[in-house]
Design a protein around this nucleic acid. Structure first.
Lengths: 111, 111
DNA sequence: TCGATAGTTAAGCACATGCTTAACGAATCG
DNA sequence: CGATTCGTTAAGCATGTGCTTAACTATCGA
């Protein structure tokens, strides 16, 4: 599980459309920096900065071989962010259920 | 489903620990502004600004009655963010499976 | 009606973010 | 070797973010 400050950077990384586009690409398989950059309307250095943010967040790992750097998705961090949201939604649903049950019992008494 | 720019603000909202704390509290049930503020080490106006960010993101809705404003979690937006992550992870897992299958078939040929 | 309670608005400030261009490094190809 | 490709570093700049304090409004309760 990720601690709070790790979640900060992970969600922060997810908050940018360019970075989400890169993640969406990497979900389909590893890619080089240029491949990631191609569809994006910005300079290469900008893409590098986004990639660094993704790497710092733990969502992506990279390795360089020769002159090409290959990036790939790290499923664990993605899963940890997903798990946080799922936990909150589960709590919320339980709470909503209790409320509904209460309202129903209240209505029963009124009948 | 949320479009890209809605996802931006949703993940952006999730990127701050104070806002995640507020969401965690609201997952347990509705709360007033002061209740949300109590555990947080910052001024009330700061909390208001976080609450506004959460409201703009669609993660939370609020209503004022008398002098107290009550906030509650909006499960749909939470679910949409969760769904985006889940989709990416599912794609990633499918890709990892294909890779594994390929490597196994490669090994089989070698035997 | 007076004081406490709950929230709101506005201004200002420090720092972070997301780009840019320019210049450079290092592997590969002809 | 020389040119090209792929990536990297550094500097600078506009805008966004996350707080603060001060001042103010609106409601409630004695």
């Amino acid at each position: 599980m990720l601690n709070e400050s790790r979640l900060d950077v992970a969600f922060q990384a997810l908050a940018d459309p360019a970075r989400r586009a890169m993640l969406a690409r990497l979900a389909l398989g590893p890619a080089s920096v240029s491949e990631l950059a191609r569809p994006l309307p910005m300079s290469l250095p900008a893409v590098m900065q986004h990639l660094k943010a993704l790497e710092d967040s733990g969502l992506v790992s990279t390795a360089k071989k020769g002159r090409v750097r290959t990036a790939q998705l790290e499923g664990d961090t993605l899963g940890a962010a997903e798990a946080w949201l799922k936990d909150r939604r589960t709590e919320w649903e339980a709470q909503a259920d209790r409320l509904e049950a209460f309202l129903e019992s209240y209505q029963d008494k009124g009948e």
